[in-house]
Design a protein around this nucleic acid. Structure first.
Lengths: 346, 346
DNA sequence: CTGAAAGCGCTAACAA
DNA sequence: TTGTTAGCGCTTTCAG
């Protein structure tokens, strides 16, 4: 009965190459003062033995450990996942590993997780929220750099990344106007979300720049649901206003709008152009017609945050709130068509 | 300029308590042969200094490292996330940390990730797939225990957990029958998925046990979409068959069915009872009426897999394919109502 | 250019 | 019951 073959350690490599561990170490780590020939021998020995250095032993010699922690407020959130994927991608390629913990919207749990993370000696922490309203800073509770994603910190001295909601609204309105729409309404989400407010205000300002106003005089707030989209559309229809463009606070709202309009014999995009927000493909691409919408590029945000944290860890911290650019995805719900407005009908 | 205060190490605790590191170690780890009084002193010193042991130094002394790896085929999959949350919850409470890596459906990337994980000395690996079709085993490529979740391994000697699709179909059919439905059709997903086949076959068998047959003679296969749900419903209507119950392979299909039936003036559940699969709340609860559906309890699966891996790591490996029970969630789409079938109409 | 030796923080025999 | 000592696997002076 043979003993289970243990993993090779540096000593084994050194022996196989006929050198000391010290030399083997230098050779493998690309240090200088090693004869090129011996370096090659060491490298080859390591290769043959299938040697990988024990990261725990390495960590013992270095101040950084090569792991970072991600603290999510709510893993199941649709916004969190893409960001997480971006983070994962940015770090996964390199040699840092990502420990993910979900606080499940529980403050107590969050504190516990933070303790655990720092006990595990993470080099830095990413705090990942599910909405755009600022949250309480944790930076002072923790001895490592922290970067906030999506949900910014309430401290200006922290480093946060979030979405440029105003830009999204601007793009949406500009797009509708460029498609010849002049009577634009906005069906927004819940006003208790900063994201909704930012989108709403920017929409109004942008219209003003075009010398226009909202068809309804003001932004219509509701919640983020399809149901509200249907209700809102119905209300617009009932109002008798000559609305020819609707900017929605989310794709779900837009989906409801499109369905309701169609149900009332109003053609999208022929009679009314509709723009959504989020590019949640489940809704934006399966809608009939598919939705023009604003994509927040959340995976990019994940990558950006990851790089920011890397920098902070290596001693180049930045501070402030960074708003990442968004992108308009044009689809059929605002396609250019010969329209009523060019030949004003009854 | 004061030097940045280093983290306290065991030595500091020992000094503060006036004992040696050895004693301090024993005291903190609950070993015996320590005077209760000194143990208390050590504990208190540790508390005051806010000491947490360096996990890397600990790992150096133990065969296990306290980290496990999760290899996901596709992090963005709706099925993967709940399982992941279960895993996270099961481990997160304890002291093992979970490293998540997403292969993005890329075999090459998958191999790379595996190398990385074993280089990081994970104690075990969970392979998390996005569908129920067996996948190639990786167990032999890796020196640690592996447990497969959702997507089982193609090796019977591996340990896999997946959904009991047959049970789901059984529950669905039993439920429809118990609600008095006798002319049941099944609109299933894509036949290239084992999950679809298993659900389809079990549905037929269960009907047979009730002395019934599918209203259409056979299972109708399509894809997993709302669109197919609408098409299928339309086809059933056109067929003129007296269908009073429809079992759908997914909630999305069911959603399409319900919408199409309503659009044709057919009442759910009054005229036709509809059962979905997945309990994807986005669809199941917002559908009108809300859907009776089968919940796969994926978070439980995550927990089960986590425990299984724990056991395997501590030397109690199990093998074979485990099918986890599912659960019927009754909602309005099959509510009991005075129905046509009791007073057969024209 | 190479290797012996010390040490990172902790645990575990073994003495005392 | 306690402390001394020797590692775990690796990196890094510092002699040679």
């Amino acid at each position: 009965m043979t003993k289970a073959s243990k993993r090779p350690v540096l000593n084994d490599v050194a022996a196989a190459a006929g050198v000391s561990v010290a030399t083997a170490s230098k050779a493998l780590n690309g240090r200088q003062h090693v004869n090129e020939a011996t370096r090659l021998r060491v490298l080859q020995a390591a290769e043959e033995l299938n040697f990988t250095p024990n990261p725990f032993a390495q960590a013992l010699n270095f101040p950084v450990t090569g792991t970072i922690g991600v603290l999510t407020a709510d893993l199941s959130s649709r916004f969190v996942l893409p960001i997480l994927m971006g983070v994962e991608e940015a770090f996964g390629a390199g040699s840092t590993s990502v420990i993910i913990s979900d606080a499940r919207n529980d403050r107590v749990r969050e504190q516990f997780i933070l303790q655990t993370l720092i006990a595990k000696r993470v080099d830095g922490i990413i705090v990942l929220g599910a909405d755009a309203n600022p949250r309480q800073s944790i930076t002072q509770d923790v001895p490592v750099p922290v970067v906030y994603a999506y949900t910014p910190s309430d401290l200006e001295t922290d480093c946060s990344y979030t979405t440029d909601n105003a830009m999204g609204a601007r793009l949406a309105i500009d797009h509708l106007v460029s498609r010849g729409r002049r009577n634009i309404a906005m069906l927004n989400g819940e006003p208790r979300y900063d994201a909704a407010i930012e989108r709403g205000n920017a929409a109004m300002e942008t219209l003003k720049k075009h010398g226009l106003e909202l068809a309804t005089g003001e932004v219509l707030y509701g919640d983020w649901s399809e149901r509200w989209g249907r209700q809102g559309a119905q209300a617009l229809i009932n109002s008798g206003l000559p609305v020819d463009g609707i900017f929605c606070g989310s794709d779900q709202i837009a989906r409801g709008v499109v369905d309701e309009l169609r149900a009332n014999g109003i053609s999208v995009p022929h009679d009314v152009g509709v723009v959504g927000f989020d590019n949640w493909e489940l809704f934006s691409t399966t809608s009939q017609p598919p939705l023009t919408t604003v994509d927040m590029n959340l995976e990019d945000m994940g990558r950006a945050v990851a790089e920011e944290l890397q920098d902070a860890i290596s001693g180049k911290p930045r501070q402030g709130l960074h708003r990442l650019p968004v992108q308009l995805i044009p689809r059929e719900s605002t396609a250019s068509v010969a329209r009523r407005s060019s030949h004003p009908a009854a």
